[in-house]
Structure formats: structure tokens, C-alpha cells
Design a protein around this nucleic acid. Sequence first.
RNA 1: GCGUCGGUGGUGGAGUGGUCUAUCACAACAGACUGUAAAUCUGUCGGCUUCGGCCUUCGUAGGUUCGAAUCCUACCCGACGCA
Length: 409
Amino acid sequence: MKPIQFTITKKIPNALGRAGVLETPHGTVQTPAFVSVGTKATVKGMTPEMLKDMGGQITLCNTYHLYLQPGDELIARAGGLHTFMGWNGPMMTDSGGFQVFSLGAAYGKGISKVLHPAEPSQQIPERSSADDGVPRLATVGNDGVSFRSHIDGSLHYITPEKSMEIQHNLGADLIFAFDECTSPTEERRYQEEALMRTHAWAKRSLEYHHARPNAERQALLGIVQGGRDEELRRRSAREISLMRSTGGAEFDGFGIGGSFEKDDLHSAVQWVNEELPEDKPRHLLGIGEPEDLFMGVENGVDLFDCVAPTRNARSTGTLYTKEGRMRIMNTKYREDFTPIESDCGCYTCTHFTRAYLAHLFHAKEMLGSMLASVHNLYFLTHLVDQMREAIIAGTFYELKESFMKSYAK
RNA sequence: GCGUCGGUGGUGGAGUGGUCUAUCACAACAGACUGUAAAUCUGUCGGCUUCGGCCUUCGUAGGUUCGAAUCCUACCCGACGCA
């Protein structure tokens, strides 16, 4: 018995995109879908009730963070992550692979998921070896990764097996293989070396997972890496999709990982999804600006997670609207007594004005961050919902064109 | 009335003869953010500018000095104390 069931209901003609249904032990996800990120067992600023009301179908928490605090064993004793955080819907956990990157090679360099080469601050020198003298909190070894806790500095060692063990304790419906995310500034030689490691770790994750009963209630997704290189990307997609445990088990779905230059994102996703088997779900890790969501859906991505809506909302009240992003603290909104978007159905837009939001942000009231998060999550969640409906209605390209015309103007 | 202390840029508050348009914080203004080291971070914050500078500011008015936010005098204002 497989833990998840994925069914494709409609495809975009002559393209990779599709709409489907993903059934998990904690409920069904209509795909494509936007996944709310709840790294530390909370979508920042949102109660599970608010998430549900906003239209959220599924959340993603993080292995590394929860292992450090409060500890995966404690969460297991609490009855698992669903019970612990009060979210009884579908849930996934990231493997800690991204922290290999963000606390390792990317540490202190101001780079993350998407690199902007035009930004002088991101002209990072290339790195070919593991040691360039920059202090970092994660060091990659062939067997696993040494982490120094960003909380208290203590040293931890995470292997693929350890990541699986933690994720088993957490108990999410979909879990990820332990991988190494690389920077686009790395040269090909290192990308290939890291890819071999990611594949070896994927095999070990698969092996460990299927040696436990958890494999019956938790789906394991393998992660495709390979940077910007077509050959590596296609090779990774093929190897991960053909990978089998000694018992013959395969991955239940796939994640597409990496840190990208904006221009490389499209090609990487397309190459990978041309190789991956059609009948399993695909998750594009950490991507979620509107234009990227359209690209992903068009190219066969079923699930997206992204911190952008909550982080942008919470930090300075940067809000998504159909006319592009707006910063609610800008002077012009101080006496604007209209909603963020008059035709938005979210709780924030149906109850409050821009002026009120602006006031909350200027006064540093936490409700401002909460209401802004509600709107942003609603916006992106419903944008992907609209894409799904448009695929089913056969109007995906019309939706994309009309949205982008207004959003990017 | 006498005495003491004090008046600095939107605010608080450094500075006590040159390195002062004047540390710092806050506020304000603008920006960044894509598997959350993030309720974080960056820039601007007297005026003008051909971006090299130029001009104007430290209660007010004088003065000393090559040079004053910094020293002196008078005045104005505030707090406290004594009458």
C-alpha cells in the first residue's frame, strides 16, 4: 500500500503542465498547489485555522530547525507534527538539505534561492574547494554534513539516515531525501561532485526509509539537483527516477532543488520535468514569485513552497496585488481607506483598509504582520488555484497573459 | 530678586578650541527579500551641486582667536535651590 495516490485529471495540450489530485493520509491536495511554509512548526503569524480559512491545503516544516528545537523526539512523544502544531491536513517536511547550502556555502554571502547577477552585492567569488576561509555553520562531507547550531553553536552531524530518522519522528505525509543544494556560482566540476553526493545520499535515504514501517504512511520524494547544466540536470532527473532500494522501492515523487539565476530557472525545470515520470508528483522547492509559479505550472510542477509571501508580509508589509507588489508603509497609503485589493476575498481585504494596515506597521503592531501574511498567502494560494482551474477549463495561457500584463506592468 | 545647572539637526542625546553638517539611537523616507540564521537586512536623512565640491547650521546678539557647537560678555528661555 502506497502512502500517497497521485492522479492527473487534465493536461495543458502540447506542454508539460497538468492538474491533478494528490491523496495523502491527512487529506487531499488539488494540484497544482501552493504550500505554506511553516519551518518551525508554525506558518509565521498564522494559526492553523487562519491557514485553513485562507484556503491553504498543505504546509511544509523543516527537519533541521525542528531537530534543533524543540527536538524531533519530543515531537514524536507529542504525537507527531500534525498533533503537535494542530494542523491535521496534508503536511511535508524538508530534509535539511537547503540548510546545507544556506548555512554552508551561502553563509554570510547574502545569497539564497535566486541569485541576481546585476546586484553588485551578489558578485560572489567562485569557490572550487570546500574551504575558502569564510566562516560557515555547515561543512559538507561525503558521509554527511556537520552543522553548528545557529541557535547555540553546538555541533551536530546529519547524515541521510539521520534526516530520515528525524522526519520519521516528525511524521509528515511527504518527506524529502537529504540533498546538497549548490550555488549557481559553483563551477561545473563542483556541481558534478555535489550531484554524485546528492545521488548517493538519495539512495541511502531511500534505503533507510523503506527499511522502516514509516514507508507505509509517509511518502519519500527524491530531490533532483544539477545546477544550471543541462546534462547534469537531465542525468539527475533520470537517476533519481530510476533509483530503487534493495527491496525494489522507488521514490513516491520528486523535488526539484537548487539555487538559481533567474534566467536558469525555466530551463532547469523544463529539462527535469521532461525526464521525470509523468505519473508522480513534482515539487519545485522554495520557488514562489507569481511569474515563477506560472512558469512552473506550465512546465509540469505540481507543488510549490515559498517563504516569500510570509516574509515579505511580515518584514515590511510588502503585499502582492494583481497590479504588482506594494509596500504598505509608503507614505501614500497612510490615509488610503480602501482595501489592499477591493476584489480580493481574503479576511484582511474584506475587513480592513490600507490605512489601518499602514498604521499597524508604523506602530509595529504584530497584527499588521498577521493580516499581511493572510493576504499574501491567500494571493499566491489562489493564484495557483486559478491556474489549476484554468488548466481544467483549457484557458491556462489566457490566464497567464492577462495576469502578467497587469502584474508586470 | 539672588544663586546653580542647562538650552545641539523631527525627537532623545553625544561632542567642550581645529580631524563638525556635528558620534549614536529613535522617528521619517526609499529599497531588498524565492526548500525562513529573517517581526530581518540595506541605503538616504540641512540646502545646492557640472558630484569635485560650494553654502548655511549647535537659544539670540556681540566679542576673543589664524580657527568657536566648544572660550568671554549681554540678553532671552527652562529646571532646581534660596529669599
